[in-house]
Design a protein around this nucleic acid. Structure first.
Lengths: 204, 204, 204, 204
DNA sequence: AATGAATGAGCCTTCATTCAT
DNA sequence: TATGAATGAAGGCTCATTCAT
């Protein structure tokens, strides 16, 4: 019974954390990082200000955890798509689309947060993003190397360069999507972009 | 004579503004947006804090003007490259390289400033960037359309999609360069990336 | 039986109070008054924060009781020494030594607590100390009057003034001992000081 | 003229500091250290809260400077009295009186402040006080050694022990005066105390 | 009796902006 | 024009105390 009480407390605690993170994401998304006060977060979560500090040790800590959720999701929703087994061009399309979908689902949060972090926070955030970036590049290099062996991509293609190009392109698309410069259905954008770099620009 | 006095006053005034903007860019670059105080800027410019407010109406105003300088430069250093008259692939390489060079030259400023702007400031900034982005896309679409007519690029290529892809790619490369994830000489990066999308990924 | 149950409850209750007071003294001694949180006290006593409030009505209340223990001890360890029956000079030495020993044994607590009390608490504390002070002065006056009658001290000595002098001196020594400005064995300090005022400074 | 302007600014600045210190001493004296807010100090000085931080870098800094004034005065008002050239017993009386006068003039401030300082502040304060204490003891030892040579005090008196006794006694008197346990005119208290230890307690 | 999550008042400090000189 | 002292709003954080379980 003491066991179940511990469990219950843990569950409640986790719930509060999630509740606060949700409130924080909402507030950050609407008011920006600087515009959000701890009071805001508390109010949205329906608790008193002091309560926030029972679950997170500072405002920065809240942000860090809020972002961690995103980063985990971002990786999980993109990397596996690269190492699938369909035709490479389809995987490329899916990869580009996934990045755009992710952005669409987190627009408010991204719009502000990635732009207002302080020095140290940004450092830590970028380290996390760098790992994701490296994972994506690595996965693409592997996929391209195999595809070249199978004759699916050009013999003279540099898998390393191409991998980096793809990831940079996905990142560029996402950025422009966040900013609203890339309207329209995600699938169409992904498909045409994918087609463009798949075939190349040059006449043949 | 009253005329020349006005002139002189204007010149002095312009000088002060430039001096303050330079100090601001330096401080923003080193300390970030939130980390920079109006006092910092004044001190670096060698004037008193109150003087700053004779030339700019707020801290946000300083930032806005500091960015305007950048945006003007960014446009001037990229758009003309697209509408040149060498082979399209060379222009593409030059375009990608120019974006990276620009980033390299303003790294400190970008690193911080683009990440810390408040709501309204970011809005205005993005509007400016959007215009540059549109100009770039437009220039590429024109260039690609002509190139297609000349048979320089594939018949079935969509100039609109390709233009957007190129610009997104340039933007993605720039972003990763800022973050330090794209080390090495700018020219090599531009050349290999350009080659990749020029030839395309697909075997032929 | 209901009687014995009440008794048992009382005993347990007293035990808890003592346990909490001990924890409080420890914490006050190490972290100071302001540096000690109710949580600290609870943790050291191995109970939950709320429990503290079952035994004391506030942090100030804890402090008050913690000091009461001290004051009782201080009185019990000094006043009886004055009204003994050995030679007066020996009683003086013993009295001075007792004050120093007391300080040595409670250094941590004194170091902080006497310096950080709030208004009201200090008022109450000083009232308690004043009683001890008066008791000491009174005891000394009585002892000196008797000693004068016996010809043990100078005929022209004012018992009242001398009593106050002795107590002030003891208090001054204690203060300097707390501050670490009076190193060395307690007995030696007490003996030399005692000798000094016993013989007086003047040549004879 | 620029010279005189600098001067004027300095004078104004010093005036403000003094004004703030006075307000702080007043507030600390009335409300205690913890009870005094920076707002209190500002209000008493007739300035805005932010202004306080133009002259002192923190609340602790204010306290430190407020105490420095005291310590300087305490030393200057006591040490010179010891090394005068009148009869030693008169110097002793003057010394004891000076300590009591000092306390009387700063009662409110002392009452609170010395009792509520935080760890570090108290450490620094005590270091300053220790120097004063040492200076006093040293001066007395010198004075007593000379007096012994002149046959003014007993041949067998230990100057070191006697010096420490005197200083401890002065400190004890001051402490009790602060606490209100030593009412009456300062001169009388000093005279009788001085007489008591000058003649000694012992019958002769 | 015991718990510990929740509360919220309160305080120090920063800094963009103003204004008297 | 230039100065820089003065302002005061605003926000992150602590912690004594309460209360539902």
């Amino acid at each position: 019974m003491s066991h179940s009480r511990v469990r219950k407390a843990e569950v409640v605690s986790e719930f509060r954390r999630a509740q606060l993170l949700e409130a924080a994401r909402e507030s950050f998304g609407q008011l920006g990082l600087a515009g959000t006060t701890v009071d805001d977060i508390a109010r949205r979560a329906g608790v008193a200000k002091g309560t926030v500090y029972l679950y997170f040790k500072s405002k920065a800590d809240i942000l860090e955890h809020a972002m961690l959720v995103d980063h985990t999701r971002l990786r999980d929703e993109t990397v596996p798509l690269i190492t699938g087994d369909g035709p490479l061009v389809d995987r490329l399309t899916a990869f580009l689309a996934a990045g755009l979908v992710f952005v669409d689902q987190n627009r408010g949060f991204f719009e502000h947060v990635h732009f207002e972090m302080g020095r140290d926070m940004r450092k830590r955030t970028l380290q996390q993003l760098e790992r994701i970036f490296h994972d994506q590049v690595h996965a693409w290099r592997t996929a391209l190397t195999r595809a070249r062996r199978r004759g699916e991509v050009g013999r003279d293609l540099s898998p390393a360069a191409a991998a980096q190009t793809i990831v940079a392109l996905a990142s560029g698309l996402a950025k422009q999507r966040i900013r609203g410069w890339l309207p329209g259905p995600v699938d169409r954008i992904a498909a045409t972009t994918s087609a463009t770099i798949w075939r190349g620009l040059a006449a043949r």
